Amino acid sequence: MAFSLFSTKNRIINLVINDHSIRFLELKQESPPAPQRWLERFLPPGIITDGKIVDFDSLSSILEECIDDWKIRRRSIRFIVPDPLVIIRKVTIPADVQEDEIKGYLYLELGSSIHLPFEEPVFDYFSLNDNGKTKELLLFAAPEQNVMEYVDLLNRLKLNPVAADISPLSLYRLYHKLDRAAVDEVLFTVQFDLTGVNLCIFDETVPLVMRHFSLSFDIDQWEVSRDTLGLMVCKFNGEPEELVVQFEDIFREINKLLDFYRYSQGNNEKQDITKFLLNGDHPMVMAIYDEMKERYDIPVDLITIDNETKSKHMSIPSNLFLPLGLALKEVQ
């Protein structure tokens, strides 16, 4: 997915900005995927909330420091559109709309026959089925104003945005590149991060439905430090029961999405969910993994990358898998 806002450049930096962090990764090689370097910076609460920039000046100052420290000024940038901003929706259009006319048709129908919870979206689409009378499309959309705030900020700091992506596609791209995908697979991805959880169901390579849920985050209950590699280490110092309540809420949402997918299939000969794929930067992600294995009959998988060297300096932290998947995106 690309939001068609950009031109193509070389030597691309891959940037992931969310409510609690800024991460960058530069790719060394694609096969097997290997990063050349990566770094991250913790974002204090209140600068970005639910994917929307709240404190533009603070974010600009922090990002400028990162650009100088990481030596990436004037580089081309891919970035992830924050999960809370993105909507994936199936839409149906007349079959006689030609391929080169689809985008214009969608522009005309947005707000009339196609309704989104925001005005003036930036969007892309993926063609699904054509029965001769209608065409079914998968629409990816986000509010243009919020996306352009990131683009304008990057441009102001002398970076060159060339492509935008969404997190489930970046994660799946890495999963597929590592030859982990199976034929006729229905994959349920769970991106479990410190301040939010993103759920997405893939029918083979197509993300059919996505749901995002924010997690409450009280900075006073967390200790944030850096490890020897300069990466974030977050330790929860509050009452464990508070995290348990959060996790139970998310498991309920996982169950709701499972039920929704099964109901939407009706009597179709589609498979049920064949696998969970768990990833994320939450410090309890392995406990979440164990709990999912206990609760569900569906296999639960984690992305792993085997390194030829055992040096810890060459290992790739799991919270960098998302920008690594982004790095595998082709810029058109």
Rank of each mutant, 00 (worst) to 15 (best):
E136H: 01
T195P: 07
Q145F: 12
L157P: 05
A34Q: 14
D19G: 08
R78K: 14
S58C: 04
V147S: 08
A34I: 11
W38Q: 12
P33Q: 01
L154E: 08
R226K: 12
A95K: 00
N268D: 09
M210W: 03
N267R: 14
W70T: 02
Y175Q: 11
L328M: 04
K275P: 00
M148R: 14
I298S: 02
I13S: 02
F321C: 09
E109L: 08
E294W: 00
L258N: 11
V54S: 09
L320C: 12
L194R: 01
P207S: 08
G230P: 02
N267G: 11
S216T: 13
Q29V: 12
N155R: 11
Q271K: 13
A287E: 15
Q29I: 14
L187E: 01
S21L: 03
D55P: 05
P143E: 09
Y107C: 12
L153K: 00
P168H: 04
R262W: 10
P168T: 06
S216L: 11
N131W: 04
D203T: 09
A34W: 10
S58I: 11
K135G: 10
G46W: 05
Q271H: 10
D179T: 06
L171D: 04
I62P: 00
I88T: 11
F321H: 13
W70K: 00
V186C: 09
L302M: 11
S61A: 13
S216C: 08
D227H: 02
E65W: 07
T8D: 14
K71H: 14
L137H: 04
C200K: 03
G266P: 02
P283D: 06
Y172D: 00
L39H: 15
D272Q: 15
K329T: 12
L15E: 06
N198W: 01
E40R: 07
K158P: 04
S318K: 10
V186R: 10
D100N: 13
I250M: 13
L302Y: 10
R74Y: 08
I201N: 01
L116G: 06
K235F: 05
I12W: 00
K256T: 10
K9F: 12
I53E: 06
S264L: 12
F118Y: 12
Q98A: 14
P207D: 10
H313F: 15
E30W: 11
D68T: 09
S216M: 10
V147W: 03
L85K: 00
L116E: 05
L171C: 02
T274E: 04
K293S: 07
E242T: 11
